[in-house]
Each structure stands twice: as structure tokens, then as C-alpha cells.
Write a protein that binds this DNA or RNA. Sequence first.
DNA 1: GCAAGATAGTTTGGCATCAAATTATATAGT
DNA 2: ACTATATAATTTGATGCCAAACTATCTTGC
Lengths: 163, 163
Amino acid sequence: MTAKLSIERTDDAQASSKGTQDLIPAIFQDRIGYHLRVAQEASFQAFAKATGRADLKPGWYALLTVLTQRDSMTPSELSRICGRDRSTLTSSLKDLADRGLIERHPNPDDQRSYSVRLTEEGRGMQERLQVIADAHDRLLEEITGEDKEVFLSVLARLTTVLG
Amino acid sequence: MTAKLSIERTDDAQASSKGTQDLIPAIFQDRIGYHLRVAQEASFQAFAKATGRADLKPGWYALLTVLTQRDSMTPSELSRICGRDRSTLTSSLKDLADRGLIERHPNPDDQRSYSVRLTEEGRGMQERLQVIADAHDRLLEEITGEDKEVFLSVLARLTTVLG
DNA sequence: GCAAGATAGTTTGGCATCAAATTATATAGT
DNA sequence: ACTATATAATTTGATGCCAAACTATCTTGC
């Protein structure tokens, strides 16, 4: 059902790791953490490249997408849902506000907090990002193939136990 | 064979995500990239905490361990084996040299390069780190359980295709 | 009501990472 | 031999992330 994938490296890539290729398995072959790190880095870089071509920031996608799900939300809620520390969101939210993709309204019930809401423009941007994210995830789906269920369940367990 | 694991969160953790918990699945449930990122972050933070308690840097482990496998090695080789950009290694190697854990010797055949070698002290440090890394990976092994093989193969495919 | 502690958001500091630019040296082609 | 290109390592600049410190505000317990 999914397109076939060629899992081969280019000649260039093969050449660049020649001679060391054999060492990797010897030491880290069984190291789950190693493979997890390298794979996640590769996935992130691929997505960052795709968004970068559209002059967007990869971190925007999760924020804008979560915001499509509710009328408004506080930064703390966003942080929990996105799985990132609150402090990480500060600059992204500023960016998004500066570009008019979100609006921040003071919360009348709590002067410390504010609510974040997508603007029309923000909604449009989310849709553009969604196309990129969809393509990225389609690729990941193809790669995981029939192992997707197991793979996701392991990731979920890791997050739960270590988180 | 492996110890039983309790996959439950503390009351505190449950409470802190109350009300948002249901939103996560709704949007990102199927997003492989999202779960991959969150799980890797959790795994890295756990390892960083363990090394931090011993006043060590997490990045040292991979370098020192690779170096146990050969008499000496160039930074470029290390970079390929560790799966990180060369520029990332520069400061780590300086750290390690400053602490006397590695020695850097000029390469007589190539003035641009040098070879890196573990000192006795470096070997001892590697052994200390190995204990921590082993414990970390035992935990990961317990979590992945019988799915380890499939999990690792998916990670390897991701790295190969996206890398 | 008021002091003590909790919470929301930001700021600061630190680390890890990549990519592009830089410098020095090797290698290849002519 | 000399020039042009490639390579090794570093430097610089950017991003993303967390954790701890900080400020402002809210809530709780007396």
C-alpha cells in the first residue's frame, strides 16, 4: 500500500563512513539510547530542513497545531501538551505574536496569566505547516511500516517510565 | 527474567497534566516524530541526570568508549562513529584533554590532523561511566522488553533513510 | 486581613547540536 | 613546480532544550 523505499545510502555517504562503519555495531549496536538519539536527530533535521525551505521554524508547528484544537490556551497548557518546558516556549510565543500568527489576551481572572489564540493568519500558517508535517510523517510511516504499532508503544512506554 | 516495572506516574505528575492529557492523543497520537522526540528527550535527560550526579558530562561517555576500542583515533573518525558533527566534538575533546583523560598527539603524516588516545585516567573514567551507561541501558532494555529487536530495527531504518 | 506558600510567566545560564565560514595543510592536475 | 581543489580541525552563529532564579500574582491558613 505504501510506496517502496530504497534503504540504500548514496555512494558518497558510504564512502564517508568507510572504515568506521564496522566499529559502530561493535560498541553501540545494542545501545538503545544511542540509536534512539541518532534516529531522533535525523528525523528532526529532516523536518527542520523541510520547514526551513518554507522559511518557517520547526517549533512553530506543534504550537500552532495544538492551538487549532481550542479557542484559546495558556502557555502552561501548551507546554504540557507539547512536552516541553514552559521556558522553552517563551521566545517561540513572542515570535508568533510578532508575526501576527497568535494573539495574547490578558486573563481577567488571573493577572499572571494570559490566553493565546490563533489569528486567521496563524490558522493559514498552520495549514501550510501541516502539509509539510504530513509529508514528513508519511515518510516516517513508510519507514516504520508494519512495525509502527510496536514502535509507538515502545516510545510511549519510554516516555512514561523515564518522563 | 527482567525486573517488573511499574508504569504508573506519581500523583503529582498525573495532576499536573490533568485536563490536557486527553488532548495529546487527539492531535499527536499518530505522529511518530512527536513520540520519537519526547521519548528521546526523556531518555537523554535520564542519562544526563545520572552522569550529572557523578559530576560527569553525558557527551563524554560515547567518546571515551569509542576510544577504548582502538589505540588512537582522529577527531573526524570519532565524529563519524559517534554520529555527531565534527564541530560538536571540539569542545568535548578540549575538556577531556584538560582533565587529562585523553592525550592528543600530532600526526607526523598529516599536520592538519592529530590522534587522540585514552590516558590511564581516561580509561578509569570510561569504566566509571560504563557503570552508569549500563544501568541506563538496562532500564531501557526492561522498558522495551521483547520489542527490543523490532524497536532497534526501526530506529536503524530511520537513521539510514533520513540520515 | 495578612503572612506564607504556590503558581504563571520570563530571564538567565548552561549544554548539545548542526551548518557555514575560516585556516592550515594535502593532494591532484596540468 | 604551481595552481586548484579537497580535507582536518576550529570558530562563529544559530536553534532547541532544561533547570534554577526571579517577578508578579494568587491562594491558603491562620
